[in-house]
Amino acid sequence: MIKKNLELDFGSIFIHENVLIAELKEGILFSVENNRKLLELGRDIFEGRPYGYVSYRTNSYAVDPLVYMESSRAANLIAIAVVSNNELVKLNARQVEQKFYKNPGAFEVFDTLEEALVWMKPKF
């Protein structure tokens, strides 16, 4: 159940229990500045409590690789899930993005949003 929806210039953000879900706009470059807005939003909404992030990749867009390094250092961001039905996107997430997260149980790739939310639930 979605508790809060936010529209930002780079995409839609949904807050679901202890999870921030981002569905970014088609064709954007997701920059470090955009990521800082998301991390700040997570810090403010969850008030320093642990939370998870779901990158709900329904659209095609580019990501500045520095985003992954910055996200991996966020204190209260404890789990990240990528959701996509595109095999290339999932392969890239597993081979590139996952390497930035030191805890092997903190990053996973899924076919559906429901699967990602079920995976996140026991982490809180």
Rank of each mutant, 00 (worst) to 15 (best):
I2H: 07
I2S: 10
K3M: 15
K3L: 15
K4H: 12
K4W: 05
L6H: 04
L6I: 12
L6M: 07
L8T: 07
F10L: 03
F10G: 01
G11M: 02
S12Q: 09
I15G: 04
N18R: 15
N18C: 14
V19L: 07
L20H: 00
L20R: 03
I21V: 12
E23Y: 03
E26P: 01
E26V: 05
E26H: 06
I28G: 02
I28M: 04
F30R: 02
F30A: 07
N34D: 14
R36G: 11
R36N: 14
K37V: 15
K37Y: 12
L38H: 00
L38K: 02
L39M: 12
E40W: 10
E40P: 07
G42P: 05
R43P: 07
R43W: 13
D44G: 08
D44N: 14
D44P: 06
I45Q: 09
F46R: 03
F46E: 03
E47M: 13
E47L: 14
G48W: 05
G48H: 05
G48E: 06
Y51E: 03
Y56W: 10
Y56R: 01
R57G: 07
R57H: 10
T58V: 14
S60C: 08
A62I: 08
A62W: 10
V63T: 08
P65H: 02
V67Y: 00
V67C: 03
V67D: 00
M69G: 14
A74W: 05
A74N: 09
N76I: 08
N76M: 07
L77P: 00
I78Y: 02
I78Q: 02
A81E: 01
A81I: 04
V83S: 01
V83Q: 02
S84H: 06
S84P: 08
S84Q: 05
S84G: 08
N85L: 15
N86L: 10
N86Y: 09
N86W: 09
N86V: 11
E87N: 11
E87V: 13
L88H: 10
L88T: 13
V89N: 08
V89Q: 05
V89G: 02
K90M: 12
L91S: 11
L91C: 08
N92E: 11
N92Q: 10
A93Q: 00
R94F: 07
R94Q: 13
R94N: 12
Q95Y: 12
Q95L: 15
E97Y: 04
Q98K: 14
F100I: 06
F100Q: 03
F100Y: 11
Y101F: 15
K102W: 09
K102R: 13
N103T: 09
N103K: 09
N103V: 10
N103A: 10
P104W: 01
P104Y: 02
P104F: 01
G105W: 03
A106G: 04
A106Q: 04
A106H: 03
A106S: 14
F107H: 04
F107T: 04
F107I: 06
V109L: 05
F110P: 01
L113N: 00
E114K: 11
A116I: 02
A116Q: 03
A116F: 02
L117G: 05
L117D: 06
L117M: 09
V118K: 08
V118T: 10
W119L: 02
W119H: 00
M120L: 15
K121L: 13
P122C: 06
K123W: 09
K123M: 13
K123C: 09
K123Q: 11
F124G: 12
F124K: 10
F124A: 13
